[in-house]
Amino acid sequence: MSWVTKTLSSSLGKKLIMSLTGLFLIIFLVGHVTGNLQLFINDDGQAFNIYAKFMTTNPAVKILSYVTYIAIIGHVVYSIITTLANKKARPIGYQTSRASTNSAWTSRNMGVLGTIVLIFLVVHLQGFWYEMHWGNLPVVQYDGEEYKDLYSIVKFAFAEPLLVLLYVVAMVFLGLHLSHGFASAFQTLGLNHKKYTPAIVFLGRVFSVVVPALFASMPIYLYISSLN
């Protein structure tokens, strides 16, 4: 085994991958939420569609998107590997446990929260990402150029209250996942400092509320719009 694989298969190395992929996905979320804010522009989806085309065609973005796929897969695969190893470290559990007195529920249930987020992600990707790439989308023209009208699909989808509910609930879970994951990623990297850690923890709390809330507000907004 080379030192690289040896390091990455150590308990610390595995957590390093979780941390780095997690942090990358946090950055991805920032980009994703910022871009999608264009859904709130009252232009019948023009800005959003132009943005969608840019995101699927720009070569730099393309590379980034592959990194994102790898990050997601890495995050999931390594979470499974570590969870299995962790289970092996304690095959017989305690009959009585009062873990709630020593740690946050979210921190102990990242696997469950992550799985829910993952299930949502599959639904989400299938509904929009797959459609955008390979689906049969209607086409619109702005300034003589053709664009796939992703906006119409989005608008149509979020007229369905059940789907809106699913998205809102999923965002709650994403928020819970982030509420531990954000600061935890820094701790794993060894970035724990008297001066900065409180700020990181605070930022993590804000992030885990604001970003999922913004995401959730989009389907809600579109649903309300669809009522008029």
């Binding site: 308990s11 873990a99 007195t101 740690s103 701790q187 060894g190 970035l191």
Partner: peptide, 25 residues
């Protein structure tokens, strides 16, 4: 055969000598 760290902080909370998780970082 020990497990990995999930940064739950339970160890620090239960350590009778109050050893901090900053050590883990």
């Amino acid at each position: 055969g020990f497990g990995a760290c999930s940064n739950t902080g339970a160890c620090e909370a239960e350590c009778p000598k109050g050893i901090s998780v900053t050590n883990i970082a």
